[in-house]
């Protein structure tokens, strides 16, 4: 009886999702594959500008970012207050170099998940990309209009507990297959973060959000607008950039 009830519910959910999905929508898996081909990268280089708003306070941080996969990254802050402060990530180890003190400090890997320089953007957000197709199952649950553009609403559920977020709700540009806005949820069901793309640019053959607003939902009245300049994806970066010697140069 119980088993029949579960099967009936599952069937109802599938039918409901199918009924809600736009008639001309590609399959959810196809949407994820298109997003991956646009937004997933093996290496990245850009100059970033973060406009951090915390209540009434407003701060600007600028940086130069270079990263290979999820294992190697170098961030150098260029705004006057933090100029020369560098962060090196090698696998799960993190070091920060403070030029005024000429001192390198090893810091806890937990910092990768914290907001960078008090912003809503974590180091992971700034340095890594997700391979959505292999990590999440997806369902197209509807359609929306974001900034005048037609978007598919796609709900993602983690296939593995190691996924960055347990559940994600994305509004995906129906034509460019770029995530225009996103809600990211923890395993507990809590909303952790939201993202809203403000500018999407064409880079070679792919579309990529170059200005986006992130909001850490565990805090109130904060948001960070991240702008990516001189962005190059899948670039050949010298592994020598990601060493302690390069950090303390």
């Amino acid at each position: 009886m119980k088993r029949s009830l579960i099967m009936a519910c599952a069937l109802w959910a599938a039918v409901y999702a199918w009924a809600q999905a736009p008639a001309d929508a590609p399959s959810a898996a196809a949407i994820l594959a298109r997003i991956d081909s646009n937004e997933s990268f093996k290496s990245i280089e850009y100059t970033g500008r973060m406009e951090i708003r915390i209540g009434e306070e407003f701060r600007i941080k600028t940086m130069r970012v270079q990263a290979i996969g999820a294992d190697k990254a170098m961030v150098e802050f260029t705004n006057p207050e933090d100029a020369g402060t560098r962060m090196l990530k090698l696998d799960k180890d993190l070091w920060m170099y403070f030029p005024k003190e000429q001192d390198t400090v090893r810091i806890s890997g937990h910092l990768l998940k914290e907001g960078m320089m008090g912003s809503d953007v974590s180091y992971e957000d700034a340095l890594e990309s997700d391979e959505l197709s292999s990590t999440y199952s997806a369902t197209v649950t509807g359609e929306a209009e974001i900034g005048g553009r037609r978007a598919f609403v796609v709900e993602l559920k983690a296939l593995t507990p190691k996924a960055k977020f347990d559940r994600r709700v994305m509004r995906v540009d129906a034509e460019r297959f770029v995530v225009l806005s996103e809600d990211m949820y923890a395993r507990s069901g809590r909303l952790l973060k939201t993202m809203e793309a403000r500018k999407v640019e064409r880079l070679g053959g792919r579309w990529y959000p170059t200005v986006f607003v992130l909001e850490d939902k565990l805090r109130k009245n904060t948001s960070t607008t991240m702008s990516l300049g001189s962005l190059v994806l899948d670039i050949d970066l010298d592994p020598g950039l990601f060493t302690r010697a390069a950090l303390e140069r």
């Binding site: 593995t160 960055k164 347990d166 923890a186 507990s188 952790l192």
Partner: peptide, 14 residues
Amino acid sequence: MVSASTVYDNVNAD
């Protein structure tokens, strides 16, 4: 609200 890195290296909060 308490948030922490989980054993799966992602963030959970409650």
